[in-house]
Design a protein around this nucleic acid. Structure first.
Lengths: 190, 190
DNA sequence: GTCTATACCTTGATAGAC
DNA sequence: GTCTATCAAGGTATAGAC
């Protein structure tokens, strides 16, 4: 089912991206070999280089494909509302179908400097900037950073460290507790 | 200076461990080759296998050596005091001399399943268990997990993502804000 | 016993044949 | 558009030199 019809560029590319997403998510960048990915896709390994240039480029494209566009909270919502949306997106969301959140996939591959750089762009440019804009007071960026740290840390706990507590806990309770932490930050204006 | 006297088992081992710590901390598990480590230590690469068995075993020993024994807070201190001590240890402490905190080194090498397993033992068994014991109420373990997530996330922000905000912020302010978040958890008893 | 030479297998990457 | 060498680098094992 993964094997594309022979001589079908588009299907080959798609099959490779698909296999890459799964392999990278499960084994990380270094743990997934191009030969394994190609075998999963039912094509020859050299096609990866023909179509994507390098393993790194394949990784970039595979992981980028499902980074959510924006954040599902109103533009004028406060930090707590945004944080709540992010908790659901990064931590609680059942991603059994779509796999791990791309940020967490990147975290598991953070040995590579290029991956860390993408992470920084993604986290700082996309998420933290948005968060910081919703805090008021002197050190909005520091408080946004702490919210980001909490979120990222929850993802790391669940997905990298592998602690079962967050997965097994009542999602509503998780949202309530993390919400209380964010509200404490809102109260502590600089 | 790194080259041990020839035919000196202890000195060779030490030199290898030393070089390994530096290489692993800077480049992660996959980014540090046994040949590079051995070259740094001024010895032949195959000695790594003679003395440690495998690269993984060398990593385990190199990283284990400087995981702090216990946590520098009184046995009867509350969660906030312990969290404060941990913030200093993991995030704020100037480890320029001793290098990154071993937990963060492990995080940067978290592509490998064995590394993740060590991380889980370390984080859950050592840090979270201690934290959970200091909360009272129903879901002490969940609240301990959230404190751990905040701490780990701060370390990840600084060391993996590479965001400059935490490093450049006033340490006292960081302690005050993270303390407020932990206190919010104490208040939210299950 | 302590170290060195060397060789083997896997993996990322390239060149050129079909 | 696809596949078959082929290469360099890296982890690992073994034999043997001092």
């Amino acid at each position: 089912m993964n094997a594309p019809k022979r001589r079908d560029r588009a299907a080959t590319r798609t099959a490779l991206l698909d296999a890459a997403r799964r392999r990278f998510a499960e084994h990380g960048f270094d743990g997934a070999s191009v030969r394994d990915i190609a075998a999963d896709a039912g094509v020859d390994a050299t096609l990866i280089f023909r179509y994507f240039g390098s393993k790194k480029d394949l990784f970039a494209e595979a992981v980028q494909a499902d980074v959510p566009e924006g954040i599902s909270a109103g533009d004028d919502a406060g930090p707590a509302a945004l944080a709540d949306a992010l908790v659901r997106e990064v931590v609680l969301d059942d991603r059994a179908a779509s796999g791990e959140h791309p940020l967490l996939v990147m975290l598991r591959s953070a040995g590579r400097p290029e991956v860390r750089e993408r992470l920084r762009e993604e986290v700082c440019g996309r998420y933290l900037a948005d968060l910081a804009g919703r805090f008021d007071g002197e050190d909005a960026d520091l408080r946004a950073e702490l919210v980001g740290a909490l979120l990222l840390g929850m993802g790391v706990m669940r997905s990298v460290v592998g602690s079962p507590v967050l997965s097994e806990a009542d999602p509503e309770r998780v949202r309530a507790l993390s919400g209380a932490m964010v509200e404490a930050l809102e109260r502590a204006k600089g």
